[in-house]
């Protein structure tokens, strides 16, 4: 069986005179947690919609599970669970009834027990018979996830799944995605505005800008995860001494970014050693925090 789950080549889609997608190339493999990154209007959602045949592309090839989407749509969609844009449900129906309706056309209708279990899994137990019209955005998002997972798909496509969620909801969503990857070996594709989210969760990613896939690949490789950027906060009068200690390490780059803070780029495994050296030299450490590199990478990439 092929390990390629999604393969998109030279995807293009116009809406009238507007070129929403010009040349997107994507390769998602089995077990990937794949991030779609890009500013608003970059073409992320259009690409996802093309992947699910919501939109007919003007050009390009889309294959899922090794099969061309155009000629194997229903066969492919049986193995896909998706939540595009926002979770829209029939407001006049209950949570249970909504899931029942979607389940019946998913190719693998679920039993009442399975639906109740799924609602419990996403934290909606006790609300099964409530009308969705009365649900908060977070609850609808959970219901959306339930709808996505109910037929046990191999591929899960989520379009900005944490948008509109409260902090706890965002954490729950991240944990859920990681559980799906680690415990159920699902392949997950999701788009997000939140760069740190992608950096934390994804092993592969694509950055789409102005309808083009600008860069695609392994997150660690793209960000050079061997090196780490850390920020060290100390006393103002100890900062010169601290900088001198750190600069002795090979390939370390030190930069003073405040009266009491320095930013250091160095190998990840040297961070505990640097910390110990500073303390032994009498440099008080108020905090050491890791700075996410994707933000810089993203900004530099788009700027270039």
């Amino acid at each position: 069986m092929s390990d390629s789950i999604i393969s998109i080549q030279h995807l293009a889609k116009n809406f009238g005179s507007f070129q929403a997608v010009r040349d997107v190339n994507i390769q998602v493999n089995r077990g990937d947690v794949y991030g779609f990154l890009g500013p608003n209007g970059a073409g992320k959602s259009t690409t996802m919609r093309c992947m699910l045949s919501l939109i007919k592309p003007d050009a390009g090839d889309i294959s899922l599970f090794g099969l061309p989407l155009a000629s194997n749509r229903t066969q492919i969609l049986r193995r896909v669970g998706s939540l595009i844009e926002k979770p829209d449900f029939y407001k006049f129906l209950s949570a249970y009834r909504n899931l029942d309706l979607f389940s019946r056309i998913s190719g693998a209708p679920s039993t009442k027990k399975e639906i109740y279990q799924m609602l419990e899994f996403v934290g909606l137990e006790g609300r099964e018979k409530d009308q969705v019209g009365g649900f908060s955005h977070g609850m609808r998002q959970r219901l959306g996830i339930a709808q996505t997972l109910l037929h046990n798909p191999d591929l899960i496509v989520l379009d900005e799944p944490t948008t509109g969620l409260d902090p706890q909801g965002i954490i729950d969503m991240r944990n859920l995605i990681l559980r799906l990857k680690n415990e159920q070996q699902k392949t997950i594709v999701f788009s997000s505005h939140n760069l740190s989210e992608v950096e934390i969760i994804c092993n592969r990613m694509v950055i789409i800008h102005q309808g083009k896939s600008v860069v695609e690949g392994n997150v660690k490789e793209l960000l050079n995860e061997e090196d780490q950027i850390i920020r060290i906060q100390t006393q103002e009068d100890a900062i010169t001494k601290g900088m001198a200690i750190v600069e002795k390490y090979p390939n370390a780059h030190v930069k003073k970014i405040g009266s009491d803070t320095i930013e250091v780029t160095l190998q990840k495994e040297l961070i505990p050693e640097v910390n110990r050296q500073l303390i032994e030299a009498g440099v008080p450490i108020f905090s050491i925090e890791s700075k996410r590199k994707l933000e810089d990478y993203f900004i530099n990439l788009l700027a270039s």
Partner: peptide, 14 residues
């Protein structure tokens, strides 16, 4: 208008 058409059309129904 409700957005449910989008949800429906991601299912394996022609």
């Amino acid at each position: 208008a409700m957005g449910t058409l989008r949800m429906l059309m991601t299912k394996p129904i022609t």
